[in-house]
Write a protein that binds this DNA or RNA. Structure first.
Length: 839
RNA sequence: GCCGGGAUGGCGAAAUUGGCAAACGCGAGGGACUUAAAAUCCCUUGUCCGUAAGGACUUCCGGGUUCGAUCCCCGGUCCCGGCACCA
């Protein structure tokens, strides 16, 4: 048998220290969370308990949590929920013998911080450190196993120097480029808005209508990586919901590009026919393509438009350009205009009209489509509106070429076949796709193409509070990247940092910063005045943590080799696509550049759930936000942590109910009492308690790795109930392992009790208790007895009892016997579980 | 519309391989201790019938597979999240 409580690595327990004469009050001063929490936080700090030996520690385990944005309101309970979940996992891994690194930092740049600074009239330079101080104070109170010697803030020049370096790595590889792009502009907030910040065509903050502006923006060519970003997902141990969100966002669609020859385009150069290239996922329906549609911005529009239609087309194009980006995408009412031109359908050989409509988007595919109104809802609607021909080319079971389409497009593809499609008639949709693409490809009219919905990442912001993009514009040399040796390009401390409606960053107003010299020729030059997106700051922070003490490199090679990729990452699904995708992209780029040996940054990722309060979403306006300080004051961090983990499954979240915390507090009170009352472990152990203990050790050890914290806590509570059943006094060897099991959840009380039990080092250096499999298995089991599938009673039999023995025992039970009325037809016997008698 | 996750007592939830549905906790009711209250401890608590023994019903709805289904299959409803005029 394996000794309970014995650590495989160290055993600092002094047995004699805990044995007291029975009857003598062991002076339990009572459980005072705030006193012992202060005491142990101070001791951890003094002893360096949570400082990770990054150089030498065995079995490195990088337990990463998503670093917070340090808001003025302080730590949100959602942050603490996530951090506690990560902390328990990290502490457990440490108890398993890993060297665990649990760092924290602050994602402190960005529009959010800047807007708040403007609102309260305090410079972010002053406000952010203040907020960070408050966050640090709150994080320390929560008792996280954070290694504070590696804390970082993205606003620190020693950090953003390397954010700029990351930009330069992308620039060097041709993955950063500048182009004019349509953006949402809020005339009131005087800023570019992300698409997510525009609700129904209005600014989400001020409600003013958003305008479309064309501004020069920096982009990262993330679309080059779309295929890999998608394919690698299959290899990652991540929450399915997160992977699914990324798949949706990347949006792969397999199809073909098909060329439609424009009939006698008047303005094309002599002898050079124009082709409209369309992207389609349904090449099988080409015989049903009765018209083409170009996006209003399509470059071919001007060339092919016929004179009679020119005025109408120009008006339509101008109108479309005026619409803001978002409402253009979400308006469901279709409209369009005929160009007067025709193209040849390469399937039918027939001429079909070319239209312009804003339901076709220039950014996706080729900016042009072949419209198949018979089999596409949008095309159907458009064709009905403008009276364009609708042809059936796909028929389902029991349908044929003449079956009318009715009032909607037929979009089924399963068990459907082609009709009205010449020699392709009768083929399945799948076969038709392949055959038609193959045939068109032979004449160069089509090729298979994969399209992604993912757009390039726009990283420039015309704002102040971010890392300046390290680019200089020189009249002689053009666009010049700032040499690495001249990094960081410091964000100047300016008072006038408010954005204006020029669409140009406030930094442009500061001539002394804006004017500089060219790093190449030394001549007059201007700085790029945009700053980079906050998501660039957070796309690489996990690489920095182990190397925060290095000022000469972004990350130390040896450290990176030792600690990365991240072993375990825990965070919210609100970052499923942006942060997590950008981090993967940046890692891949650095991998391709030969800087990193791995191309995926997070080996395992788990999305935690959301906390609501009393059934309602927490919000400032509702006034139902949980303030961690308040609860920690009242109940202690240990009870607060444990309650957060107990209120629901970690990956689903749960309902924070103020009353609920008392149950967890009672549990800790009883733990405190049990340890202080515990008597020495002489004499005969109580076998039932021993069994329950070993079952609990097994269960908690299995539940924590799968983040099933609520059930682990329930198991410990059950054990506590067993331990104190019938007002028995627990023994020291019964409570000591429980203190260890509780320690990841409630670290302070665990340390206090561990030391009260004679521990001379931290409980977190004491290892994890092991269990005896022989004690886990009950040798007497309660089996259910069913008659015709209905449970009629139970029998208590030895685990090894045979079918006949159980049957005999069952028949001895009068209530069971009375249901066995006729001859027994069949008996189903599941050893140790149940007996089902069929009569 | 497409993709992912859900729906179980008054409430939060559990059931790890298809095997006693409701562990653990909250709330509620009753009791002990107390002059009293708090705290603590004990008992009861899915619904219905029954004094009880016991019985019937019960995991969103409707079917199916199985000796047996919260779990697997088919169809549907609702909730949460992602994507969305993406061709």
């Amino acid at each position: 048998m394996v000794e309970v409580g014995a650590s495989s690595r160290s055993n600092s327990m002094t047995e004699s220290a805990v044995i007291r004469p029975t009857g003598e009050e062991p002076s339990p001063a009572g459980y005072d969370p705030s006193a012992i929490e202060r005491k142990w936080q101070a001791r951890w700090e003094a002893d360096g308990t949570n400082v990770t030996d990054l150089q030498h520690g065995a079995r490195p385990f990088y337990a990463l949590m998503m670093f917070p944005y340090p808001s003025a309101e302080g730590l949100h309970v959602g942050n603490l929920f996530a951090f506690t979940g990560n902390d328990i996992y990290g502490r457990f891994q440490r108890l398993q013998g890993h060297t665990v690194f649990e760092p924290i930092g602050y994602d402190a740049f960005g529009i959010h911080s800047e807007n708040f600074a403007i609102k309260v009239g305090i410079h972010p330079d002053e406000l952010i450190p203040r907020n960070i101080d408050n966050f640090r104070r709150q994080l320390k109170r929560a008792g996280l196993m954070v290694d504070w010697s590696h804390e970082l803030s993205t606003t620190d020049p020693a950090y953003y120097k390397w954010t700029q370096w990351v930009f330069l790595q992308l620039y060097k590889r041709g993955l950063a480029y500048k182009k004019k792009a349509a953006v949402n502009w809020c005339p009131f907030d005087k800023t570019v808005l992300a698409n997510e910040q525009v609700i129904g065509g209005a600014c989400e903050r001020c409600g003013n209508l958003v305008e479309q502006r064309f501004l020069e923006q920096w982009f990262f060519r993330i679309t080059d990586y779309a295929g890999r970003l998608l394919a690698n997902l299959d290899t990652l141990d991540w929450s399915e919901s997160t992977k699914s969100a990324q798949r949706n966002w990347i949006g792969r669609s397999d199809g073909a590009e098909v060329a439609f020859r424009v009939e006698s385009a008047p303005k094309s150069p002599a002898g050079e026919p124009d082709f409209v290239r369309v992207f389609t996922t349904r090449p099988d329906t080409i015989f049903g393509a009765t018209y083409l549609v170009l996006a209003p911005e399509h470059p071919l529009v001007d060339r092919i438009v016929r004179d009679g239609q020119r005025a109408l087309v120009d008006e339509y194009v101008a109108e479309a350009a005026k619409q803001d980006v978002v409402s253009r995408r979400t308006t469901k009412d279709k409209s369009g205009v005929f160009t007067g031109a025709y193209a040849t359908n390469p399937g039918t050989g027939q001429p079909i009209p070319i239209w312009i409509a804003d339901y076709v988007l220039m950014e996706y595919g080729t900016g042009a489509i072949m419209a198949v109104p018979g089999h596409d809802e949008r095309d159907f609607e458009f064709a009905q509106l403008y009276d364009l021909p609708i042809v059936r080319v796909v028929a389902g079971p029991g349908q044929d070429a003449r079956t009318p389409l009715g009032d909607s497009a037929y979009t089924e593809t399963e068990s459907a076949h082609l009709v009205n499609s010449g020699r392709f008639d009768g083929m399945t949709v799948e076969a038709g796709k392949a055959a038609i693409v193959a045939e068109l490809a032979s004449t160069g009219a089509a090729k298979p193409v994969v399209n992604y919905r993912l757009h390039d990442w726009c990283i420039s912001r015309q704002r102040y509070w971010g890392p300046p993009i390290p680019i200089v514009y020189c009249d002689q040399c053009g666009v010049v990247p700032v040499p690495e040796s001249q990094l960081p390009v410091l964000l100047p401390a300016i008072e006038d940092f408010r954005p204006d409606d020029s669409g140009i960053s406030p930094l442009a107003r500061h001539a002394e910063w804006y004017h500089t010299t060219c790093p190449e020729c030394g001549g007059q030059a201007r700085r790029e005045t945009d700053v980079s997106d906050t998501f660039l700051d957070s796309a690489w922070y996990f690489l920095r943590y182990p190397s925060t003490d290095r000022s000469d490199v972004p990350f130390d090679d040896a450290m990176t080799k030792r600690w990365l990729p991240v072993t375990s990452y825990i965070g919210g699904n609100e970052h499923a696509v942006l942060h997590l995708l950008y981090s993967r992209f940046v890692t891949m780029v650095l991998h391709d550049a030969g800087t990193l040996a791995f191309e995926e940054p997070f080996t395992r990722f788990r999305a935690h759930g959301m906390i609501v309060r009393e059934g309602a979403k927490m919000s400032k306006s509702r006034g139902n936000v949980v303030n961690p300080d308040h609860y920690i004051d009242e109940w202690g961090a240990d009870a607060f942590r444990t309650y957060l983990m107990f209120l629901g499954p970690f990956e689903e979240g749960g309902d924070f109910r103020d009353k609920g915390i008392s149950g967890v507090k009672r549990f800790l009170d009883r733990l405190w009492k049990s340890v202080h009352e515990a008597v020495g472990d002489g004499g005969t152990p109580d076998l039932d308690v021993q069994r329950k203990l070993h079952q609990t050790i097994k269960k908690v050890g299995e539940d924590i790795p799968r983040l099933s914290y609520n059930t682990a806590i329930a198991a410990m509570m059950e054990y506590m109930n067993t331990l104190r059943a019938g007002e028995r006094t627990p023994r020291v060897d019964e409570v000591r392992p429980l203190v260890q099991l509780v320690s990841p959840f409630a670290p302070h009380i665990a340390e206090e009790l561990w030391s009260a039990l004679g521990g001379t080092t931290s409980v977190f250096d004491g290892g994890w208790p092991s269990y005896d499999p022989a004690l886990v298995a009950e040798d007497l089991v309660t089996m259910a007895v069913q008659v015709n599938g209905k449970t009629r009673g139970t029998v208590s039999v030895p685990k090894t009892a045979t079918q006949d023995e159980v049957l005999t025992a069952a028949k001895a039970d009068a209530n069971i016997a009375k249901f066995i009325t006729g001859p027994v037809k069949r008996v189903v016997f599941v050893p140790g579980r149940l007996l089902n008698v069929l009569v």
